[in-house]
Design a binder for these strands. Structure first.
Length: 427
RNA sequence: GUGGCUGUAGCUCAAUGGCAGAGUGCUUGACUGUGGAUCAAGAUGUUGUGGGUUCGAGCCCCAUCAGCCACCCCA
């Protein structure tokens, strides 16, 4: 054996073996399908950006602690992109005058964040971003939630398995006002709400009282957070749920006053999707409405709504539930064997004929014992083995073996493509 | 950045401080023109890395790297 590699992969970076890439590509395919059903356009932005792009809009945590930052040869600070929204804002602002609104864009690509790798979290991940810009309405919010729900449905997650929880920032702010919580205290209270499911109730109470809430406010807050009918007090949420009903995805969505989302730039509807039954407690995806997206990059004010989904959490969930299609190692379903040295190049010629007929074909690179070649075919998930031995060569024929059921037939070389196609079509 | 657990054959894991092991996979054969099943034989290790304690370290101590889990944050 060779010695062990002395230089490991960089911490938290992903290595995609063929079976891993198959999973990634499967998710990509479903994401594309969901977005395309709703008429969203695929776009792409640079993987490397100036750090200054994020300084304006993204949180301090993301820029200072979670970005991979480098200097280019001119001394400018650049970074592997930790998120997509600032790039979106810039590209839209640059062509704001000529783009057609409402704009519906999606992207699926790599992102990097310098975090401690753990379950559902790596330093390199693929993220699906979907955004609609230029419309500010609960009905537009409903469309985005509907795209997300459509994806969940496409990958085989039922409403019982995965749920999208929805809340509204304006509704919560109004409730906070009613309790006499000051605007400067709102950020703390939002964080408090966010933390509620992670702390023991008593500890949470103490934490709240120690940070400026009085007992009356705490009681009121707990009442609000337990009120699953609270959405009826929000015109926006009433319209949202009616639209979701019409869009046919209402069963995937639930109101939950505990959903706040940490990002400061959300202003209205917010939502997160969770796996209800599995081992991952992290959100599958999250998003919401943000106003004034373009203000910081010099564009005209423009409201938008969007969400993001990482590939890591959804990948774990789909694997756990057996929802990833079986992996076939070989993309070519046909193996042409090489019987011996004298027939070596004849086998190559047979392979070329089959490829010319439009088939995908592996040919053994050198003579080997047939059992070994058949074993290889089996391991690679190949469905048809082609044998060209002395008998076949003498009569201008080849033997075709169906590896699924073990049957075989000997046919002329000219007929082989047609016969193989029939075998492949039969299963 | 903080805390906890782990690191032994390709993989999953054993081994009271005293000879480095099993299952699985791999190679070969039973079967020189046919894979999956069965049986038999065989090969495989700087015990993550570097120090230390000890007559003796896979095991104890320190450091370091990596992985997992939780916190922070978030997709």
């Amino acid at each position: 054996m060779t010695s062990k590699p002395t230089i490991p992969a960089v911490k938290g970076m992903r290595e995609f073996y063929p079976e891993d890439l198959a999973v990634r590509n499967y998710i990509y395919q479903k994401v594309c399908q969901a977005a395309t059903q709703f008429g969203y356009q695929e776009w792409e932005s640079p993987y490397v950006e100036a750090i200054a792009l994020y300084a304006a809009k993204s949180g301090e945590e993301l820029v200072e602690k979670q970005s991979f930052v480098f200097s280019d040869r001119g001394g400018d600070k650049i970074t592997l992109r930790p998120e997509l929204t600032p790039s979106l804002a810039r590209m839209v602002a640059k062509r704001q005058g000529e783009l057609v609104f409402p704009l519906r864009w999606w992207q699926y690509g790599p992102m990097w964040r310098y975090e401690q790798p753990q379950k559902g979290r790596t330093r390199e991940f693929f993220q699906w971003n979907v955004d609609m810009l230029g419309v500010n309405s609960p009905e537009a919010d409903a469309e985005l939630i509907s795209v997300a729900a459509t994806f969940l449905k496409l990958v085989g997650l039922s409403p019982q398995q995965a749920t999208i929880l929805v809340n509204n920032r304006r509704l919560m702010d109004a409730q906070f006002d009613f309790l006499g919580i000051t605007p400067e205290n709102r950020t703390f209270v939002s964080g408090l709400v966010d933390r509620r499911t992670k702390m023991k109730p008593e500890a949470w109470d103490v934490y709240a009282l120690e940070n400026g809430l009085n007992q009356q406010q705490l009681d009121g807050l707990e009442k609000i957070l337990g009120d699953l009918d609270l959405w009826q007090k929000s015109d926006e949420l009433v319209r949202l749920f009616k639209a979701l009903e019409a869009l046919g995805v209402r069963e995937y969505v639930k109101f939950d006053p505990n959903i706040m989302r940490g990002l400061l730039y959300y202003t209205g509807t917010v939502f997160e999707a969770f796996d209800v039954s599995g081992s991952v407690r992290r959100a599958i995806l999250g998003g919401g409405r943000y106003d004034n997206l373009l203000a910081d990059v010099g564009g005209d004010p423009l409201s938008g709504v969007g969400f993001a989904m990482g590939d890591v959490v959804i990948g774990i969930i789909l694997q756990e539930k057996g929802l990833i299609p079986a992996f076939t190692p070989s993309p070519a379903p046909i193996l042409v064997t090489v019987f011996d040295e004298s027939l070596w190049l004849d086998s190559f010629a047979v392979a070329a004929e089959l490829r010319a007929a439009g088939l995908n074909v592996i040919v053994s690179p050198e003579p080997a014992k047939l059992p070994k070649q058949f074993k290889f075919a089996d391991r690679m998930g190949i469905r048809v083995a082609v044998v060209l031995g002395p008998d076949e060569a003498a009569s201008g024929q080849v033997t075709l073996k169906n590896l699924k059921n073990g049957t075989q037939q000997t046919v002329s070389r000219s007929q082989a493509p047609k016969e193989i196609s029939e075998i492949l079509a039969s299963a």
